[in-house]
Amino acid sequence: MDAPAEPKHYLVGHIREALAQDARVNELTIQVTIAGEKIFLTGNVATAERRDAITEVVGEVAPGYNVHNETTVQAYEAAPDAETLS
C-alpha cells in the first residue's frame, strides 16, 4: 500500500499522546521515530506487560505501519551506589 497520508510530524505527536493517555501504557518518555512505513519505539518501560501494550496502542493509532518496539523493560542493579556528601 501507499504510505499512510497523515504527515509524519503530526503522527509522532499523536502516537506520543496515545502512549501517555492510554490506560494500558501511561508512558511519557517513549521516543518515536518514523522511517518510511516503519515506526521505531525506544526508551525504558517499567514492565513487560506495558511493553506489549505499547505495540498494541501504536498499532491502533497508526494502522498500516510496521511497528518496531525496541523499548527496554527496566532492570536495575539491587546493590546501591553509595555517596558520602560533604
Binding site: 536495575y76 539491587a78 546501591p80 551506589d81 553509595a82 555517596e83 558520602t84 556528601l85 560533604s86
Partner: peptide
C-alpha cells in the same frame, strides 16, 4: 540505574 542509591551526610 539502581533500585535506589544511598546518600550519607
Amino acid at each position: 540505574k539502581h533500585v535506589y542509591n544511598v546518600y550519607c551526610f
